Simulated scan of single mutants.
Amino acid sequence: MATMTHDTAVQRLRSGLILAVVSASSFGLSGALARGLMNAGWSAASVVAIRVLVAAAVLVPIAARQLRGDWQLLRRNGFLITAYGLVAVAGTQLAYFNAVAHMEVGAALLIEYTAPIAVVGWLWLRHSQRPGTATVAGAALGITGLFLVIDLRSGLTTSGVGIAWALAAMVGAAGYFVLSAHGDGTLPGTVLAAGGLLIGGLALLAAGAIGIVPLHATTNPVDFQHFTTAWLTPVLALGTVTAALAYVSGIAATRLLGSRLASFVALFEVLAALIFAWALLGEAPRLIQLLGGALILGGVIVVRRGEVDATEAPADEFATER
């Protein structure tokens, strides 16, 4: 029985890791596609708003079928869905865009992607899940790799306002993993993603309407490194791949892995973004960035090793978070 339980836990980890890498890779594609649209005259907020609303349009019919008329399920999880939409979707995006308005993108990304440390701290304080040696060592490797991947240069300027917004984006990113792992056990991940994306998209439109973020778009052709395409193609890819697929697989991965390990695997998004930027925009990664990617991979492996060992304990993250 103990062997079967251990094998099941290891299988959950493997399945969760595959889904987490799919999610991180899908999220990573968004930057290159969004850059193409922004170069064609779109505002960043417009790209995000159309991205999440297209994803909501894709997922809502699927979510409705999964609900099978059980609207009471939505009411029971209304707070979770609303929090997911406002914090994990809209809040994170708005905070990040306001951060880059006051500081360099690399510095803002570095602050936002310290979210795994915030997740570890939250689980420690809220659920008494003290991080083990493997988690601490993996965090050190992963964050060091993140420094190298982002490749911060000397002379970067920041401001107190920019740092505050970047910290808010970090909190929102941490909230994504914490909220994705929760629920009453009956709420399908697709329903959570669809509801959150719809609420988040409407919140972004409202933010644009009152002037918090600029909303403007064009129908100009979109240029990438080796081809030019109509604006609709990257918009559909953003909505279906980098949002619908990314959020659904991310929720499923977090429910399998727990918010702690899932947040570390999500660091692959930065490396994936570099690879897609190389393929679509011709922005070749530097050697130091490839070294950073290797360190991120090493950090995830170390944290994963710790999670496998933890499955043998009687009280672990799977018991407290599911």
Score class of each variant (00 low, 15 high):
residue 208 G to E: 09
residue 167 L to V: 13
residue 166 A to N: 05
residue 14 R to L: 09
residue 126 R to W: 10
residue 322 R to A: 12
residue 296 I to N: 02
residue 318 F to S: 15
residue 170 M to W: 02
residue 156 L to D: 10
residue 248 V to Y: 10
residue 305 R to H: 12
residue 242 T to Q: 03
residue 307 E to A: 15
residue 224 F to D: 09
residue 30 S to P: 10
residue 121 G to R: 00
residue 105 V to P: 02
residue 224 F to I: 06
residue 175 G to K: 12
residue 33 L to C: 06
residue 32 A to R: 04
residue 84 Y to I: 04
residue 67 L to S: 12
residue 43 S to C: 07
residue 51 R to H: 06
residue 276 F to N: 03
residue 95 A to E: 09
residue 280 L to G: 01
residue 313 A to W: 00
residue 4 M to A: 15
residue 274 L to G: 02
residue 17 L to W: 01
residue 171 V to N: 03
residue 121 G to K: 00
residue 309 D to M: 05
residue 108 A to H: 03
residue 123 L to V: 09
residue 110 L to P: 01
residue 137 A to I: 15
residue 287 L to R: 12
residue 145 G to D: 04
residue 8 T to D: 14
residue 262 A to R: 08
residue 132 G to N: 13
residue 152 L to Q: 13
residue 223 D to I: 00
residue 241 V to Q: 05
residue 51 R to V: 04
residue 289 Q to F: 06
residue 321 E to W: 14
residue 240 T to H: 01
residue 267 L to V: 02
residue 166 A to H: 03
residue 231 W to L: 08
residue 301 I to Y: 10
residue 65 R to A: 14
residue 285 P to Q: 07
residue 130 R to T: 15
residue 130 R to H: 13
residue 4 M to Y: 08
residue 181 A to Y: 07
residue 118 A to D: 01
residue 269 E to H: 07
residue 242 T to G: 06
residue 188 P to M: 08
residue 260 R to S: 14
residue 299 G to N: 08
residue 255 R to K: 15
residue 90 A to N: 07
residue 226 H to Y: 12
residue 45 A to N: 00
residue 276 F to D: 05
residue 238 L to W: 06
residue 253 A to C: 04
residue 234 P to T: 03
residue 36 G to K: 02
residue 11 Q to K: 14
residue 228 T to A: 11
residue 184 D to V: 11
residue 243 A to C: 12
residue 81 I to A: 10
residue 160 G to C: 07
residue 255 R to Y: 06
residue 238 L to N: 10
residue 84 Y to D: 08
residue 134 A to W: 14
residue 272 A to Y: 00
residue 240 T to W: 01
residue 167 L to Y: 00
residue 5 T to G: 08
residue 215 L to W: 07
residue 167 L to M: 10
residue 94 L to C: 12
residue 303 V to W: 10
residue 192 L to M: 11
residue 45 A to T: 00
residue 203 A to I: 11
residue 107 A to Y: 02
residue 234 P to A: 03
residue 279 A to D: 10
residue 66 Q to V: 03
residue 57 A to F: 08
residue 261 L to C: 02
residue 312 E to C: 01
residue 210 I to E: 11
residue 81 I to H: 11
residue 301 I to F: 13
residue 108 A to C: 09
residue 118 A to M: 13
residue 159 S to C: 02
residue 278 W to R: 02
